[in-house]
């Protein structure tokens, strides 16, 4: 499986942490009020984070 690039649109992120909580592979982390993706290599591209982000702030791209 090819890797994923996780894009965080910081301007839109409100730090709700839904994406972090429901990521099945623990790819994401909160950096205080902003989501970060420290482990993109673990991403299985299930898209849960992107689908559940209410703020149009996270996108999963094919690498």
């Amino acid at each position: 499986m090819s890797g994923a690039r996780i894009e965080v649109i910081e301007r839109n992120c409100k730090g709700c942490s839904i994406c972090v909580e429901f990521c099945p592979k623990n790819v994401l982390e909160m950096d205080v009020f902003l989501v970060t993706a420290p482990r993109p290599e673990d991403c299985i591209k299930c898209m849960q984070c992107e689908l559940l982000c209410p703020d149009f702030a996270i996108k999963v791209h094919d690498e």
């Binding site: 301007r11 839109n12 409100k14 730090g15 709700c16 839904i18 689908l51 559940l52 982000c53 209410p54 703020d55 149009f56 702030a57």
Partner: peptide, 14 residues
């Protein structure tokens, strides 16, 4: 128009 007006965690964006 983004970011929208809804609160953090509000499901309306979903």
């Amino acid at each position: 128009k983004l970011p929208h007006i809804w609160c953090p965690g509000c499901g309306h964006g979903i």
